[in-house]
Amino acid sequence: MTIDDYMAELERELRRRRAPRVRLLRETEDHLHDLCAELAADGLGPEQAEARAVTQFGAAATVAACFAEATASAAAHRAVTVTAAAFLAYTGVFVAFATAASPLLRDFPQGAASFMALQLAAVALGIALVRSMRWRRAPAAPTTELTAIARALTVAGVVLIGAAVAEIAVAVSRPAGVVAWSDGRLLTLAFAAALAVLLLSAIAAVRAGAHAQAADSLSNRHVHASAAALLVDDVETLLARLPLPQVSRTARGLLAHRWAATIALAAFAFVAVSAAGVVNSGRAGLAGAEALAAVEASLIVLSFVAFGRTLGLRDAV
């Protein structure tokens, strides 16, 4: 194979994997010509030298896969950082809304969508963070992990964007004159800014997903473990770095019995929300608090049913 043939093949392979091409192609061509000159100086003929140089450089598909996996890994880690920033921005706006906004603005259902979405987004982001931290120092993460990271970030982004849109819809559907625009101006602008950051994070998540998919379809390293099994491995690897064997055992137990853990979490949430309602409003508020607690507990179970597989918390049947 000549250097020109090899370069054409490498470009095709990189293009199929959606990997950046210009710089790598330029460096590869320089490298191959240097190598070829060295081999020719050692006595090989021009054709032999070119053939030996491309062999020594490695099959175009292998080099492209290696580069695409590294690119996909970087895109996934970057998307985790951007989504974490968007999550914090939205949490900040929500906390400001819940604590400092005029009581007129805080009337139910305003805030309810954000409250629920933030919880689900926190779980999704937590899963993506665990997966990302496990592989951050590695040259490239398995593409199954990258796909799982992108999916979890997409879930976090979509539910938060949905919540922001719902908040805006509730705000604009209030009867005119009930709340003056000036009362909620700063808060509305803050929600809009958070929404803009969320859209950026969603773009980063989608890009990470596209890179992961392109790298996965033509990967040179096939990982046969499922996303759920890899998550267990990630958690164990991260916890093994900490001197906390008890925490390790507990986490392993929770991940081994995911349905039981979800039901237990829902039960805990029910008790906690009911107790918080009684503390805030006395026994008179118990019925309302229990209704809210039932909604919270149901949403935890429903979220596990609806998003468990997408988040890689449980395997597809």
Binding site: R23, E27, D30, H31, Q56, F57, G58, V63, E69, A70
Partner: peptide, 29 residues
């Protein structure tokens, strides 16, 4: 890139012969 590969090969007394194309993803990372 090329000089880095040569340096690794020479310093390892010719023992470390890398798949040369794997160097660039590592450098970019």
């Amino acid at each position: 890139g090329y000089s880095i590969i040569r340096a690794i090969r020479d310093r390892s007394d010719g023992e470390f012969k890398l798949l040369e194309g794997s160097l660039y993803p590592a450098l970019h990372r």
